[in-house]
Amino acid sequence: MQRVNMIMAESPGLITICLLGYLLSAECTVFLDHENANKILNRPKRYNSGKLEEFVQGNLERECMEEKCSFEEAREVFENTERTTEFWKQYVDGDQCESNPCLNGGSCKDDINSYECWCPFGFEGKNCELDVTCNIKNGRCEQFCKNSADNKVVCSCTEGYRLAENQKSCEPAVPFPCGRVSVSQTSKLTRAETVFPDVDYVNSTEAETILDNITQSTQSFNDFTRVVGGEDAKPGQFPWQVVLNGKVDAFCGGSIVNEKWIVTAAHCVETGVKITVVAGEHNIEETEHTEQKRNVIRIIPHHNYNAAINKYNHDIALLELDEPLVLNSYVTPICIADKEYTNIFLKFGSGYVSGWGRVFHKGRSALVLQYLRVPLVDRATCLRSTKFTIYNNMFCAGFHEGGRDSCQGDSGGPHVTEVEGTSFLTGIISWGEECAMKGKYGIYTKVSRYVNWIKEKTKLT
């Protein structure tokens, strides 16, 4: 034993070699072989497995989906700052455009905790909710729209109204504003409101030439003092309507412009014939205590009207009353817009006519005020429907199939267009061939041609 100890002390290297040989010859039971080890760690190889990531292109799944990435790591994937920024906006807080917040056709661009709407022409605001041009839906104005110097929408209202708090709607500024039905039992019968379409306001006024200088022999019209197929109006439903009495009662109609003036057809009036105007009328054979009678003290036909040349060209006249009318729910003026808007309103496509005229061709006159909704007829169809001249200051309205029309005794009465609950004068009943005849239409004086003249002559002093 002493000898062994001496050998170990003198030859430590020998001992180490012996131990190493023993270990190498022993069977290893701690580690699995290569094949079995792979069965336990069965993990798919990654895209760049075996390579240094710093030297390969980034992978979106590896960089940002398996674990949260930084902007720089995302930049490695896209290799483009702009594309990385677009991805980053949604990656950080989701897609803010998912709810489609942009209105009126706006395009949404996502941002971090926010979004941006790219608005089409005519709109602005956070969600493109603000109209900035009158060309689109009248700028959301209830009545009139004008573009300011910086191309912003400025709404306005006709006389007797003021802008509401929203700067879009119009509200009454006087007790009985024009064009409004205020009798409670008839307010439910107000005709369907007309909503502004998209309009090209630059070209809204037709490029028409008034044929002022045409000389033409007097034409022989049949029954051209021209509501057939209409309905009984309720008291106060058309408070701007008046009836004219002269040699015979209810020979023509008219509309209240203001307390002192009536507008009617020029062919209705004769110099030297006494005319009485009755406002607030409903049943011409009954006294309903809503009527107001006034005498006409002055007749002003349009300066281009000449019955000797043509009885229905420039067929418009103004009547001055001896005493002002007292405005109330049964006696209310009709609204008159400017030339541009009167023309736009007419193009809405349908209007209402009213009167006490004959209820059928050569038949009896109506006792109760009649009204009828009539569609506008395109000019080409209008011209083809008659052998008589249709001037540019006239328009056609009615039904091709016949059966409904204005008729004798309705002449001078109103053709009105309702705009968001307020009625505007767009025409004056003038003439036609018979009444409600198939293929024939009622012919009306186009008020847009005469609004400046009306307003100039009827100013209240």
Rank of each mutant, 00 (worst) to 15 (best):
L369P: 14
E323Q: 13
T271M: 11
V377D: 00
G442N: 14
E340D: 15
Q370R: 13
I256A: 01
I309M: 12
V181S: 10
G50K: 13
Q216G: 06
T194A: 11
R364T: 14
T461Q: 13
N138R: 05
C141R: 00
K188M: 10
L319F: 04
E53Y: 05
C407V: 06
N304F: 10
Y47R: 06
F224Y: 11
V202Q: 12
I136T: 04
E270P: 13
N104T: 01
E76V: 15
K387A: 12
V296A: 05
K39L: 11
R62S: 04
R364E: 14
T133S: 14
T209G: 11
D249K: 14
R62Y: 03
F345K: 01
T16P: 06
G272Y: 06
C134R: 02
I454L: 09
E54T: 12
G421Y: 04
N38G: 15
N135M: 06
G236L: 05
R384F: 05
G409C: 12
H34F: 08
C335L: 00
E281L: 12
P333D: 01
L189V: 11
N36K: 11
G179Q: 01
M6A: 14
I428R: 00
V368Y: 06
E61K: 15
I17N: 02
L376C: 02
Y371K: 13
K362H: 11
D33W: 07
R75T: 15
F176Q: 06
R379I: 14
E86F: 04
D95F: 05
T445A: 05
R191G: 12
E418S: 11
K89W: 05
T271A: 09
F71T: 15
A9N: 11
L41H: 15
P235N: 05
F388Y: 14
P177G: 02
D223Y: 06
A26Y: 06
I40M: 13
E259A: 08
Y330I: 03
K68D: 06
E61F: 13
V56W: 03
N295D: 12
V174Y: 05
C119Q: 01
Y115H: 03
T417S: 09
G253V: 12
H303E: 08
F71R: 15
A307I: 09
N48A: 15
G105Y: 03
A149T: 09
E124A: 06
R404K: 02
N258C: 01
P101N: 03
E323G: 04
V278R: 07
A149H: 10
I136Q: 08
R226Y: 11
F399E: 14
K446V: 02
S350R: 14
E10S: 14
N36E: 11
W240H: 02
Q143S: 00
D198W: 12
W453H: 01
R162P: 01
Q241L: 14
A397D: 02
L60W: 06
S423H: 12
N59K: 15
A173Y: 09
I17F: 09
Y444E: 00
N306L: 05
N42M: 10
K152D: 06
E259F: 03
M437K: 13
E61N: 15
N283I: 08
Y352T: 07
E10P: 15
E420W: 15
G398I: 03
V419A: 05
T29P: 02
F345H: 02
L367G: 14
F238R: 04
P333W: 00
E86H: 15
Y330A: 08
H282D: 04
V353A: 06
I7Y: 08
C128V: 00
K146M: 13
G21I: 15
C268G: 01
F87E: 15
D249Q: 13
R191P: 13
P333K: 04
R43V: 15
V377A: 07
I17S: 03
P239D: 00
M65D: 05
P324R: 05
R43M: 14
F31M: 15
R46L: 10
I214E: 14
S99N: 07
S354F: 07
W356L: 09
K440Y: 07
T264R: 01
V368W: 04
K440G: 13
R180K: 12
E98W: 08
V419P: 01
G229T: 05
Y371V: 15
V154A: 11
T81D: 09
N343T: 10
G403L: 10
N258T: 05
L189E: 14
F55E: 13
E340K: 06
S385C: 09
C28T: 09
C170S: 00
R364N: 14
A250V: 09
F31R: 15
I284F: 12
E72W: 15
C117T: 01
E79D: 15
S406R: 12
P120T: 08
K438L: 13
V199K: 12
F71S: 14
G179I: 00
W356Y: 14
A37C: 04
G229C: 10
T426C: 01
V154T: 09
V183R: 09
I309C: 06
K438D: 14
C18Q: 04
S411K: 13
F196Q: 09
N80F: 04
I299K: 09
E35I: 08
E27Y: 06
I344R: 12
F424T: 00
S430K: 02
F238L: 06
A380H: 07
K311S: 06
L460V: 04
T186Y: 09
L23G: 03
E259V: 07
P177K: 01
V4T: 11
V202D: 08
K457E: 09
F348E: 14
D315E: 02
T225V: 12
I7R: 15
G403N: 10
N100E: 08
W88V: 15
L52T: 15
V257I: 05
L460P: 12
H267E: 02
L41T: 09
A250H: 12
F348H: 07
P101R: 02
G357R: 14
G230V: 11
I334K: 01
N295Y: 07
F345V: 03
N313R: 13
V277C: 03
S350H: 14
D198C: 05
E208C: 06
C128W: 01
A397P: 01
E434L: 11
V154C: 05
C157V: 01
T417C: 04
A207M: 09
K438W: 11
E86S: 15
F395K: 01
K89D: 15
P12N: 11
T458G: 03
C145M: 02
V195Y: 13
S423F: 14
K347A: 12
G106C: 02
N48K: 10
Y341W: 05
E420D: 14
G355C: 10
V228R: 12
R384Y: 06
S423E: 03
I210E: 12
C141Q: 00
N213F: 06
C108E: 00
T426N: 01
E159W: 05
E76M: 15
R43S: 14
V243E: 02
I136D: 08
F399W: 14
D200Y: 07
E27H: 08
Y330V: 06
D322N: 09
N203S: 09
A366Q: 13
A366Y: 11
M8R: 14
L325T: 00
C18M: 10
N304Y: 09
G442V: 12
F121R: 10
V92F: 09
C382I: 03
T186Q: 13
K311C: 03
L425C: 00
V228W: 07
G355V: 09
Q219G: 13
E418H: 10
G50L: 12
M6W: 13
G13T: 13
K51F: 04
Q167K: 05
H400S: 14
K293G: 03
A308K: 11
R384C: 03
K455C: 04
E193T: 08
S354M: 11
S156T: 11
R43D: 10
T81N: 11
N203T: 13
F345M: 07
G122L: 03
D378W: 03
D405E: 14
K457F: 07
R373D: 03
P44N: 10
G254W: 00
N100F: 07
L52Y: 08
S107D: 11
N393D: 09
T290H: 12
A436E: 13
S220W: 06
N306Y: 05
P235Q: 08
S350Q: 11
N393G: 14
L189W: 10
N36V: 11
N127W: 05
S11Y: 07
S187W: 10
N304G: 09
N203R: 10
F221Y: 08
E171M: 11
E420P: 01
E208M: 08
T417F: 02
F31P: 04
K260M: 06
N306F: 04
V278T: 12
E193A: 12
R191A: 13
L369Q: 06
N258V: 02
V181P: 11
K152Q: 08
S430F: 04
F224Q: 06
L318H: 01
E53L: 05
E286C: 05
A9L: 12
D200L: 10
P235E: 07
P414V: 10
V447Q: 00
G21W: 07
K339W: 07
V228H: 08
T209Q: 11
